[in-house]
Amino acid sequence: MDQVHHRAMDALQPFVHLADSGSASSPRFVANIITNATSSPHTYVFAELLERPAVQALRAPDAPAELQGYLTLLEIFAWGTWQDYQQTPNLPALSDEQARKLRLLSLISLASTIKPLTYESLMTSLSLSAPSDLETLVTTAIYSSLITARLSPATTPPTVNVTSVAALRDVKPTSLPSIISTLMAWESRCGSVITGIEQEIAKIRLESARRRTSEHTRMVVIEKTLAKWNPESGEAITSGGGPAGRGVSSTRKSGWKKDISAALRGRDFFGGGSNKREFDDDAFFEENANEVDALASGMDIDEGAGARTGLGNAGARTAKRFLGKKS
């Protein structure tokens, strides 16, 4: 659609240059420029031509009355419709090219304002008597890239489904205040939306900072607790969990495994008090590292002539003990 607008602007430039030339001092010459510009098949925007001083001079009181209508006709081509032409008196007659051009321009405006766009409403607005004439006009607009549409003659009622229109209509000066008001209202709504988004972002950041602080505090407490109960550390802890010097304190100067082993060395595994040969953690006798309990039973073996002769005698002597016999 932007390419269509650029092509329309380029097509208007020759007529703008003619309006700025020295020959444009003649009202009749200016009227001919307007007629040719509105009849050209590629001109769809006319605001730049309408602003030329030579064209605006047709509005002067001393301009011929029969030529003043050309300025009004150019304004209708710029932002009016076919109905505006029909309702305005004392306008020049249109050629077939001008009539087709004004109907195409009116179709762009109607497609932007009327929903749904039925055959009946279009034929009434464009003064067309047959549906085939309307379909021919719509097809021309589609192939000229003025609108993107699809004809639906079999629906009830028959409609023209328009999905997009080209930005080829000029803005009427009297409509500028309403456009400015609409844009200002839109800007205000956008500002409110942005403010709400910024407030939500601030809340999210505040909540995230709070969670990070809470997580950091929790991790510090966990690390301190783990440090107090670390078996390999020499940190002093009290029975009440407080620092050393308050209440009954104890110092973990060695690991818990060493503490348990030292406590077990002072007792017999069978509750009979201390024994000079106890089975240690690695299944060796304390007195002699070469003496091994063949059954790995963890109990003492009676001393005797055959106690250290071999694994077989040790196993037999141990079995006798279990049976209540002693050699």
Results as ranks from 00 to 15, higher is better:
Ile237Tyr: 00
Ile142Lys: 03
Ser188Ala: 15
Gln199Ile: 12
Arg59Thr: 15
Ile76Ser: 01
Leu117Trp: 00
Glu286Cys: 07
Ala314Pro: 00
Ile34Leu: 07
Asp302Cys: 09
His216Gly: 10
Leu137Gly: 02
Arg28Ile: 14
Met9Asp: 09
Met219His: 08
Ser109Val: 05
Arg103Val: 11
Gly298Pro: 06
Thr148Lys: 02
Ile180Gln: 04
Val248Phe: 09
Lys320Val: 09
Ser145Ile: 06
Pro243Trp: 01
Asp259His: 08
Ser40Ala: 15
Ser152Ile: 10
Ala263Glu: 03
Met9Gln: 11
Val220His: 04
Gln3Ile: 15
Pro243Cys: 08
Phe15Ala: 07
Leu295Gln: 11
Leu134Lys: 01
Ser145Lys: 10
Met219Glu: 14
Ser26Leu: 12
Val138Ile: 06
Ala130Asp: 05
Ser106Arg: 02
Phe46Met: 06
Gly298Leu: 05
Lys224Cys: 10
His17Trp: 12
Leu206Asp: 15
Ala185Met: 08
Thr88Val: 03
Gly240Phe: 05
Thr155Gln: 05
Pro158Ala: 10
Leu146Thr: 06
Lys326His: 15
Ala63Asp: 08
Ala314Met: 14
Val4Ala: 15
Arg205Tyr: 12
Thr81Glu: 04
His216Val: 13
Ile76Thr: 02
Ser233Ile: 03
Glu287Gln: 09
Glu187Leu: 12
Ala262Val: 13
Ala78Thr: 03
Ala8Ile: 05
Trp229Ser: 13
Glu66His: 12
